[in-house]
Amino acid sequence: MTAESKLGCRANYFWSMNSPIVECRSISKKYGEIPALVNFDIDISAGEVFGMIGPDGAGKTTLFRILSTLILPDSGRAMVLGHDVVKDYRYIRKSIGFMPGRFSLYQDLTVEENLKFYASVFGVKIRDNYHLIKDIYSPLEPFRSRRAGKLSGGMKQKLALSCALIHKPMLLILDEPTTGVDAVSRKEFWDHLGTLQTDGMTILVSTPYMDEAQRCGRLAMVQKGHLLDIGKPDEIRSRFNGTLFQLTSSDRYQALLICRNSKQISSVHAFGQTLHLTLADGVQTEFVENLLIDQGIVEVVIHEIPPSIEDCFMQYLT
């Protein structure tokens, strides 16, 4: 790897296309006594959309800050684009696009001024890379002279993404880009990420929303600095332990309480209008139906469903 860094930018780019874009080896980081990341290992290949899924305090932001050279790990080794995040931070900074948790826009600058500023910071002209951001930025064109602070959440998100993309980074790191944004903008945002991926961009993205997991090529489920599972969404779902059933009834809350008290039902969770449950060995769905009907609950329908990422996540937590 030391030999690589002597080859210069172009050679490195070529090299990194065939090797992991991100390589983490037992990264650990503590804030005071509180561990943020514990022995974290992750590999991300070129052209992937890699998702980090987990609640606040899982370590997503810490990992992203380490990878974007903003903070140093306490131990372990991380390579980004074939360069060490500690030693070669200059190279990495030039080559990645980073969008921190809160959309880091200058609220008092206009849409266009923000974009121009970030372009000039990286020493590029907007028109040179405009093709990259065209789809994302064009809806903002009519508002180019509006101050960023006056944009809606969805528009801020688009502008922040445009700013992170304008220097044509080799790796895009997005920290919770969809938090606090409306459902339509969230959907559009993931569509944009899909387009970028088709163009060959490697994307590392985090989200607290489990339902966005399916949009990632591969994902890591994280909790309290630990990696729970890693893989393609379908792989993770296939590792679900047991058979998952969905139950609808006349009184969801009452049904939930009854199921929770039954030893024959090993797990039960509310899921929107329904309940998701797994049964102890040898227990049939009829047992649950009868159990509920005996307690005066009607319209009980129970059938098997494929587990979602959220189901898998909860199985790891309980």
Partner: peptide
């Protein structure tokens, strides 16, 4: 429940109920 893990979220909703 912003940013809370899925299990704790559901426990929170139990309290709401």
């Amino acid at each position: 429940t912003g940013g809370v893990d899925p299990v704790t979220r559901r426990q929170f909703w139990d309290l709401i109920y």
